[in-house]
Design a protein around this nucleic acid. Structure first.
Length: 112
DNA sequence: TGATTGACCAACT
DNA sequence: CAGTTGGCCAATC
């Protein structure tokens, strides 16, 4: 029998994503690495997909791939919504690509 | 209930 | 240099 204190992979993902500060972005791989599964980056995106049903407070629009490309924009309902949200936070996005991505990048390890 | 897939990444050929 | 493959966990078919 599993301990209730043991959180699922998804729960850990949500915990990290929720801590992303305003105007900052991070990547799937970085989050996956932060929770101890560097190669589970795909699951992070999968968690985002379910997050719409589970935790609407998760800023999924602040999570992009390692290239700073808005690969998950197709899952926001409106393709332009993700880009709009990022631009509203002061992040420049052109052609689904975050401009000066390294400057807006936020490392989840900073919460430790 | 087994097989497939899914918003990724890195290594290998 | 570009295309393929392996890996991870959970949900869907």
């Amino acid at each position: 029998m599993k301990s209730k204190i043991e959180e699922s992979f998804f729960d850990r993902v949500y915990s990290v994503v929720r801590e992303i500060p305003y105007g900052k972005v991070t990547t799937y791989g970085t989050i996956a690495r932060c929770i101890g599964s560097p190669q589970s980056a795909r699951m992070v995106g999968w968690a985002m997909n379910n997050s719409h049903n589970l935790i609407p407070e998760v800023p999924a629009h602040r999570v992009v791939n390692r290239n700073g490309l808005l690969t998950g924009k197709n899952h926001f309902g409106n393709v332009e919504l993700m880009q709009k949200l990022l631009q509203d936070e002061g992040i420049k996005v052109i052609n689904d690509q975050i401009i000066d991505f390294n400057s807006h990048f936020w490392d989840p390890m900073s919460i430790y």
